[in-house]
Write a protein that binds this DNA or RNA. Sequence first.
DNA 1: CGCTAGGGATACTC
DNA 2: ACTCGTCCCTAGCG
Length: 277
Amino acid sequence: MGVQGLLPFVSSASTEVSLEDYRGQTLACDASVWLHRGAISCARELAEGEPAVGFLRFPLRMIALLKRHGVRPLIVFDGGAMPMKARVDAARAADRESAKARGEFNKTVKITAAMTQQLIERLRQDGVEFVVAPFEADSQLAFLVQHGHAAAALTEDSDLLAYRCPSVLFKLSESGHARRITFAGLQHAQDSKGQLLFDGAWEGEWAAWEGGLFVAMCIMAGCDYLPSVPGVGVATAHKALRAGRTVERALAKLHSKRSGPPAPVAAEAYLLRALGL
DNA sequence: CGCTAGGGATACTC
DNA sequence: ACTCGTCCCTAGCG
């Protein structure tokens, strides 16, 4: 899920925070992760089509955790499926089928609209606010924070950074602590040698990353919408973009060093289009 | 030596 | 008929 390896790559820009820091404020919460983890507790029942409500326990406990710290939860649900992700969705469905055949029910877990409806009913009863995103929750979460409807997004999905969400909370623990990464804070992210990743190599470098290079790095490293370039991860994409300073030159650099199967040129066309270039 | 990608173990109850 | 896993470790690549 998300961009593989992105969070470790920028982990130096993360800080430990407590839910207490958000007392009296709103957090936009990604419901899908909570539902997925909750569904593990009744994976077999769900796989066999038996009635089950155990999957509600985990998300409700997380909401209670937020309330205990005086935080106002705004739960965000996924909406419609993205046509561009049809290929990935089909592959995941096939994986679930084979897992079911092997009896590995934990890997067959899929959150259905009916399950989402059950949680929504509980939220209505409990007076917990929620919204259903038009498509994926990711971009809706980023929107809510960007427009001041929430102080931060609470999720496990690194895509929130690709969507330039101003403030994201990852890895919330039962103790109420989490790792926070702000988009502006990425300016100070550094590698293992203490060198800045997105600033200082040339005049106005951070503005370039902020303006589009960071999103390009995420896409080049592999996303759910496009076939990825084999052998290119976050680090390689970062190096190419920093050396080339533009998406076009970075892609050219990757080409010159590549060997093996031909590069998916269609992916590059989509990339440039997605970036408005 | 850094990096990518894949395999294995693992998730959930309060 | 219905919606996304992730961490750790390492082989094997450049």
